[in-house]
Amino acid sequence: MRKYEFAYILDPALDDAAVGESLARYVKLIQEHGGEVTQQDIWGRRKLAYEINKKTDGVYVYIRMRGTRKVVDELHRTLRFDETVMRNLIVIDEDAERRNAESRARAGVNVDAPDRGDMRADHRADMRAGG
């Protein structure tokens, strides 16, 4: 058993009920194949960085789970035929949020993402200084 992150983008034409149904279907599929869903979120509708199938928006769904290769294979198989899913990503879950939070706590850094300014402008200034 490994931990996975599974995210996908749904067609923006779907209404909230259809989105919920889709999520429930995938949760069920994972469970049927011996997986365990530890988190399920609907991130909601957001703008895409580029057009996919002539669409500029998508509904993001995010699932954290534990399972075996079998579950992942099954998801890939199902996703291939699900025409409402525009994109999907299944990757090993490295618990980024938790581990980064712990790391910050250990170091006593409590700012999540301080503004580090414009790194490229800094670089140009360095080059002018003869570096």
Binding site: L89, V91, A96, E97, R104, R106, V109
Partner: peptide, 12 residues
């Protein structure tokens, strides 16, 4: 910058 923010896992 990741060290400064104590980021251990770079999150997509």
């Amino acid at each position: 910058k990741f060290y400064l923010d104590r980021i251990v896992v770079i999150d997509w």
